[in-house]
Design a protein around this nucleic acid. Structure first.
Ligand code: SF4
Ligand code: SF4
Lengths: 137, 137
DNA sequence: TTTATATACTACTTAAAGGTAGAATTAAAG
DNA sequence: CTTTAATTCTACCTTTAAGTAGTATATAAA
């Protein structure tokens, strides 16, 4: 019961980028080193983030990556969506999921609460919120 | 962000067993068929549940499986523990987890809430609670 | 005591996640 | 124009989860 390593990495990467001065690009080597993420794996993740439109890439010498939107406009949920790791409304804790409403088991209502809290957290937490305070790692 | 297939299967199996008449054993073939779980995979899961002491097995003709404790004494958390799928206290949503207390990020407190709810749900929901009402699948 | 029927064990296969290697591509700077 | 530093692409490797196959073992019943 946890986020995939890829999602966790992606969030940490983007949070770190949000904490840097704007309009300045950061390259993959620096990200990999500071965040302790395998360089090649990070590069692969970055390409996904570019494809999904969260990050802008600048190739060639002096290149690197930049956020494509304001840190306050990128939500954790957007990142999870990119790696199919977000929580869908229909998601059932037991992997059945089609007994909604009618004939529900005792877990149904209890799962509703934390599910909604998680969805809300993912939907409403921006990179700015996270980068703004606390440890950046 | 979901339980493993193995954990989900295990819960569904035990809930179904809890819904049956007591002191009557159920065999793997019946479980696999009614719960739509691959027979051989189910058999493997059952062996784990026996080893961890949640289920008793009766070998040979007329054999099968029986719960080793009362349905009200088997908690969902016990099952998740058996497959290393439960949520640890230190578990951090970003996979870092050692900035507890000091220097916490904006997700820390927000993650706390659903985490505690989930832990509570897993700890306090018994098979009896789930099997008692709703669809048995 | 044999037979049928059940679980248990060992080993393999498949699919997905996580991770690595190297060459191709791009673009600034000398 | 060449060098150099960066991303991107393609392909592969490794590990773990999920699923399968076959055989050994146990036991109630015929
Ligand atoms: S009733 Fe239970 S099994 Fe059905 S969708 Fe809700 S949580 Fe899942
Ligand atoms: S502060 Fe943030 S990163 Fe650190 S343990 Fe808490 S949730 Fe994880």
């Amino acid at each position: 019961m946890q986020l995939s390593a890829t999602s966790q990495y992606a969030i940490r990467i983007l949070v770190y980028m949000a904490g840097q001065k704007d309009s300045q690009s950061i390259n993959a080597a620096e990200l990999a080193e500071t965040l302790l993420i395998p360089y090649k794996f990070l590069a692969k993740i970055m390409t996904s983030l570019v494809k999904v439109g969260l990050v802008e890439s600048i190739r060639g010498k002096e290149g690197g990556y930049k956020l494509k939107k304001k840190a306050s406009d990128i939500m954790v949920g957007d990142i999870l969506d990119a790696f199919h790791d977000s929580i869908k409304d229909e998601q059932c804790i037991l992997g059945i999921g089609f007994c909604n409403g009618i004939c529900k088991c005792a877990l149904h209502d209890q799962w509703m609460e934390p599910k909604l809290l998680l969805q809300k957290m993912f939907r409403e937490s921006s990179l700015e919120d996270i980068a703004g305070r606390g440890c950046k790692r």
